[in-house]
Structures are given as C-alpha cells and as structure tokens.
Design a protein around this nucleic acid. Structure first.
Length: 521
RNA sequence: GCUCCCGUAGCUCAAUGGAUAGAGUAGGUCUCUUCUAAGGACUUGAUGUAGGUUCGAUUCCUACCGGGAGCACCA
C-alpha cells in the first residue's frame, strides 16, 4: 500500500512538471491525521494544490479521502473496503500473517547469551538472551534463515578460580569463593594461576577431572534455564576451541597489523588492546578473531550479529577494526549490538550469592507476584526487556512488570485470553463481508502488523513490535468496552471478525516476542 | 584526566529531520457492576543549559552541566 501511494505521488509530481525528489510516506502518529501521510506538500509548496488535485482525480479504490493539512502534509484515509479486505487477509493467512519474504535467502547468525561455565547465570544474561532470541525470530519472520549460537568461556582465569575452590571442597558457588580468595589471599592467587595453566595444557589428572565434571554440570544447568526461557541454540562455540586459531591469525599478521609491546602482542586501533599476552596466551580479543572464522566455517552467513552488554562496546570496536584488517570479508558482515544493563531497584540483594542475582532467583521472585504461574512470570520479564530500545539500561520493577493494567506482558496476555474467550462464547460465525459504517481504531492498526515486523528487523528494534502490540491491546479493550460484540445485532459477525483478526495478530506478535500466548487465564 | 553511551511529564518508556512531542503509571473529575472491572471518558503535566545548521531539530553539529560504562596483558 505504501508503495502504491509512493508511486501515485511520483506520477503526481511528474504531471505537475517536477522531478520527483525525496519525500516520505508514513503513518502519522495520530490516527486523526489519516492512515498515511506525506510531506510532498512541504517539499513542493507552490505545487501542493495541483498535486492534491492530481491525487484526487486518480484516487486508488483503497483510499477514501485525501486532504491537505498543517504546513502542507497530504493525509490519506483508507476506505472501509480496505479494512474489510485486510480482515479477510488476516484470517486467511492466520499464522502466516506478518511473515514477509524480503529477507528471503539471507543467512543470519545471531550470537547471544554467552554465559561463562562455572559462573552463575545471572540477570545480566537475561538481556542478551531475550533480545538475541527475539531478534532471531524477527529475522525469521522476515524470511531470513537464522542460526542462533552461544559462545561460552570455558577456559580462563574465572574457570581456574572455580576449579581451585572445588579442589578445596567448596561446592556452593565455587566461583564466588575462588574469586574472593584470589583477591584476598596471595597464596591462593598463585595456586589459581598455576591451575589456569594446567587447564590449558591438561597436564594434571585431578584438575582435568574436576574441570570436566564442573564444565558438564554447569552447561547442563544452563540448558534448564534455556528450556524455561524457550531458547534453542543451533550450535555452541567455546573459547577453548577458538584460542588456538585466533592466536595463529594474530601471529601471521605481526608486523603489518599487530605489533609487540612490553612482551605482549597488541593492536593499535582507536585505542590499544592486547591480543596475545606476555605469557603467549591468546586474550579474548584474539579468541574473537578465531571465533569469527570458526563461525563462518560452520555457517557461511551474510550477516553475523553479536549481542553483548554495553560495557564491551569499546572493546568490540577495536576488535572489529583489527578484524577489518585481517579478516576484512568477515568484518564487513559482522554487526555488534550492545544492550544496556538490567538493574533492580537498589537494596535488592541476592540471598545466596551476595552480589549477583541469578536469573532463576528473579524468575522465582516474579512468580510469587503472579500466583506462581511461570508462563506469566517469563512473559512479564521478557516484555520488560523488549518494551524499550536496545542499548538503554532497564530498571526492573517487579510490581510494574506484572501490572495487569497498562504496560506489561500480562496486559498483552490478558487481552489475548479475553479475545479467545469471546470467540469461544460466540454462537455466530465471524464474517467480514458486511463492514460497518464507522471504522474503529483497531481496524486501522491491525493491517500494519507486517510493516511493524519488517521495520523491527531492518532496524534491529524488537521494541517496535512490543509497543505496537500494547497499542493494539489497548484499542482492543476500547473496542470491547464500547461495542456489543456478541449480540443479535446484524453487524455483530463483522465485530467478531475484528476480534478474530485481533486474536491472530496478537498471537503472532506474542510468538515473535517469545511471550507465552495463554488461551485462558 | 581521556574515550564512548545516555539526559524527554512526579515515575517508567516512545517518537524513520515534520503537524498540537506520544503512551503507561501516579494525581484530579466522572462513568460502567459486562461477552474477563485485569474496563471506559475527560483532565493536570516534559525535550538539562547556551549557541549553530534547516522552511522545520527530541533527532544533526559545537560548548557546558548532570548520570552511567570503559580506559592494554581479566573475561
């Protein structure tokens, strides 16, 4: 439809004798200002009357009314016939409604979550997990082929700290204990560094055993959380596998790209970073180079998205600069997507670990506020993360997250459940063949769903979908309050058709966001 | 100190360079006892400061103020 309007305006411009330049066709923020709006009247002020006249004469059947408004906007209003057909389209396509093919054949890899074995899966991991998996679904809905992968740090000092603690017989939260000793006790620090080396070279049987068992248990516990959150990874990559290759890539480019400095090998980009430390071990930076190559070998992507926290924004900038020199083809396809931090109101402390709050604990806390329903709790958490733009910190207010009125996952789930209940109780069939005189706001929102999904994919902005669904749910509530949906009124089948379309769009939207669409609540 | 990110209603968030800066909550005034009151109507209220570019700036540029993150051998 948007294309159609654009073409029409192009023709209009030609007919009044101007070379078509830049102009925008968009949905105005306020429905009063029409369904589509264009700024051509501002761009070509002196011709606006003529342009309007041309459009009026050549009005497509979907458009009911055109008018000039404000400083020269041309607003277009869709006809009730258009809405009627959009309802038909929605019920016809059902679960497919909203899918597009514009990214068809495009291969995307999304790396997200990236927890470290031996450490807690804390609330900080919920952000990349929810954002990454939702973005993956958005890409899929746009026709792309998507692989979700998880890159985990199974070697390194943090692992040594945990292994050391386990060796001391500490079973509860070994990393926390090991980390504490590392900082406070010089002797423990030495032992931990020794263990770190042994983990790399696998020379000590006892340590190998502790390491293997701990790694396994840790990874298994992550799987339980993924299951709860509904995340499915296509593959897992580990730092223990990327280090060697990364080191080799760096070593092959000493001189031109990397240089020696104080015993380490560094890259001097927008700031200097160490890629191989003075002990000859690859750092995170080098490992990420190796990871890029390994990931590409697994799946030759057209786009590689890496979702991480904001705090390594600078780090990634430099890694991508270095990658641009040694693996230029891959660097071009890589997109770093940093997200903000998930914060809880101050004063909230974990009961078990002291400083970090695990994802598990948060889910339990939210559950307590929703009569123990895990599906509702998960939906509430996901919505809180997805409702706002990626990149900004989130203040997670538990009470707000489960608020039944307004802006929450529960609100969407209720609206959906309510529409289900209406459809169940109705004794008539939904029928969109006889549209009503007046269109309701909800009709003017429903057909936009595919556009929203497309835009969310293009701009890496799942929050467009979340906020759209909330607006849609609100207009559904409004519709519900003002219209007798089930009645003897001859128009009621059309109203039911609206409810049915809403039901479909809401279900599809919740699917994309990964929020459980509960039939009943 | 340097670099990056962010400053929008009392609070939590929106706004592809466009119209009267939108929502939700909180506050105020009403309303509905229903097919899920987990409603509905009206209302109060905001772009940190000072410049610049533009027909038009929350958006782009510069400086300042305020908050957060990062600053080479941790990940």
């Amino acid at each position: 439809m948007q294309e159609k309007i654009k073409n029409l305006i192009q023709e209009a411009l030609k007919s009044v004798g101007v070379e078509p330049g830049d102009f925008v066709v968009e949905h105005p923020t306020d429905l009063k200002m029409g369904d589509y709006s264009t700024n051509v009247g501002i761009k070509y002020k002196d011709k606006k009357e003529e342009i309007l006249r041309y459009i009026e004469v050549n009005l497509p059947e979907e458009i009911e009314k055109v008018e000039l408004a404000g400083p020269g906007f041309i607003n277009l209003y869709l006809s009730k016939d258009f809405f009627k057909r959009s309802l038909e389209l929605i019920t016809e396509q059902a679960q497919e409604f909203g899918k597009s093919t514009h990214a068809k054949g495009f291969k995307v890899m999304v790396e997200h979550t990236d927890p470290n074995p031996f450490k807690e899966f804390h609330i900080g991991h919920l952000m990349p997990n929810v954002i990454g998996s939702t973005l993956s679904r958005v890409f899929e809905w746009n026709g792309a082929e998507v692989k979700q992968v998880n890159y985990q740090g199974d070697v390194g000092l943090h692992v040594a700290k945990a292994v050391w603690a386990i060796k001391q017989g500490i079973k509860e939260h070994p990393y926390v204990a090991g980390n504490k000793s590392y900082e406070e006790n010089p002797e423990a620090k030495k032992e931990i560094e020794e263990i770190n080396k042994k983990i790399y070279d696998k020379s000590d049987q006892e340590i190998n055993k502790i390491y293997q068992e701990g790694r396994k248990t840790s990874l298994e516990s992550f799987e339980e959380i993924y299951k709860k959150l509904g995340t499915k990874f296509d593959n897992y990559f580990f730092e223990s596998e990327t280090g060697e290759l990364g080191k080799k890539i760096v070593e092959d480019n000493i001189g031109e790209v990397f240089e020696k400095s104080e015993g380490a090998i560094v890259f001097k980009g927008s700031h200097t970073r160490v890629f191989i430390n003075s002990l000859g071990l690859p750092t995170y930076e080098a490992k990420d180079l190796g990871n890029a190559k390994i990931k590409y070998e697994y799946y030759p992507y057209d786009l590689s998205v890496i979702v991480t926290g904001n705090e390594i924004r600078e780090y990634f900038k430099v890694v991508l600069e270095a990658m641009g020199k040694v693996l230029p083809d891959l660097a071009k396809l890589t997109k770093h997507l940093p997200h903000g931090m998930l914060r809880l109101p101050t004063g909230k402390m974990s009961s078990r670990t002291g400083d970090v709050i695990t994802a598990e604990e948060l889910i339990e806390d939210v559950k307590e506020n929703v009569k123990g329903d895990e599906q509702v709790a998960i939906g509430a958490i996901k919505y809180m993360i997805l409702r706002q733009a990626i990149g900004n910190d989130i203040v997670f207010d538990i009470e707000k997250s489960v608020s039944t009125e307004g802006d929450s996952g529960v609100y969407l789930q209720y609206a959906y459940a309510r529409s289900n209940s209406i459809l169940e109780k109705a004794d008539k069939e939904a029928d969109s063949s006889a549209p009503r005189e007046n269109t309701h706001e909800i009709e003017r929102l429903l057909y936009r769903f595919p556009e929203v999904v497309e835009r969310a994919g293009k701009e890496y902005a799942p929050h467009y979908i979340a906020t759209y669904l909330t607006e849609l749910a609100a207009s559904f509530n409004n519709f519900y309050a003002h219209e007798q949906i089930i009645s003897d009124d001859k128009e009621s089948p059309y109203r039911l058709a609206i409810v049915q379309a809403f039901n479909i769009v809401m279900q599809n939207g919740l699917d994309i966001l990964g929020i459980p669409a509960l039939e009943k609540m």
